[in-house]
Design a protein around this nucleic acid. Sequence first.
DNA 1: TAGATTGTTAATCGATTAACAATC
DNA 2: TAGATTGTTAATCGATTAACAATC
Lengths: 194, 194
Amino acid sequence: MLYHRFLSELTSRKPVRTVTSAQIADALDIDPTQVRKDFGAIGILGMGRVGFDVCEVCRAIRVVLGFDQNHNAILIGTGHLGGALLAYSGFARYGLEIVAAFDNDDRRIGSRVAGHTVKPMRAMTPFIKSRKIRLAILTTPVTVSQKLTDRLVTVGVKAIWNFTPTRLTVPPGVLVRNEHISIGLSEIAYHLRH
Amino acid sequence: MLYHRFLSELTSRKPVRTVTSAQIADALDIDPTQVRKDFGAIGILGMGRVGFDVCEVCRAIRVVLGFDQNHNAILIGTGHLGGALLAYSGFARYGLEIVAAFDNDDRRIGSRVAGHTVKPMRAMTPFIKSRKIRLAILTTPVTVSQKLTDRLVTVGVKAIWNFTPTRLTVPPGVLVRNEHISIGLSEIAYHLRH
DNA sequence: TAGATTGTTAATCGATTAACAATC
DNA sequence: TAGATTGTTAATCGATTAACAATC
């Protein structure tokens, strides 16, 4: 992941063909052996004396991370954070497309947010089924997130990107990725405390 | 961090006095010895036969994480994401208060966002100096984030909470915490790919 | 060829887990 | 007292680092 970011930054600055493990290790402050091990693990072989082909590495990492496949997602909860995510244009780069946004609030339903017409909650289940949606982004109030999760799971959603500060319980086979702000905050608070 | 969240959830459900390391370990799916080690490391001693005092543990964790101290922060960039963060009411719980919001856009300057009047960028440096701000939250376009960071650092900011998808370079002693969406996204994409 | 960089095996380091006497 | 849970020491495991022959 960090490799991918570093390599895209590298190529965006000036077009380079190859990098050595030492260069990467220096920039990312890790051990060069580590880099070679990691690359080897995903089946990339370097070339003696010149290093690794940047394009080849990038491509392989994208495949491993799953960014080469396109995923359709729905977003639930069009408040501040939901709106910010809908407006974010960087998802396409990683193969993610938000294809619909849902909300419970009558004042929001039917309005347009960042190019999406907000749909009512009752339209959610049929939508998931017909479009075979497997990923849902949760930006709702905490009070409804667990109930909603249960509903999503029963209609076939396989991954939930949880932006609400709740720990969700799901059956095995379903992934919950928590994006909880307080983890980052704790690191900062710790640093500021000296 | 995870401990803290688990314990607050536990007490919010029903008021319990003590927990055993085994209970915590079960819930968080780790080894009970690990729990005792961690607690020991921050100076918390359990009681034989009954376990640990919940309140005492929570308090100690908050101190370690720095949540007991209050920090004033400024936010720069009042777009979608900036607005969402300004509207988020959960920061107070962790001792963080956003005391001012800045933007470059004339249409936004002077407008009110979630109770804050957006200030122009030229007011930023004097504000930081007079209020001795040590933390800045960055929700600007990527094009200006590094330049802005340099300015912030020279006027005394010690920590930057970076929500822009750029790797920032800072002098030693300054912390950058990156909140990059693509890390979470890669985990999800990986799972959906099976 | 000479030299730089790789892939891989061996050694080190740290963190996680197991075991158990001490304690309330 | 008896039993459960702790703190801590020892053992295991994995991951990181070092070393070096093979390679372009």
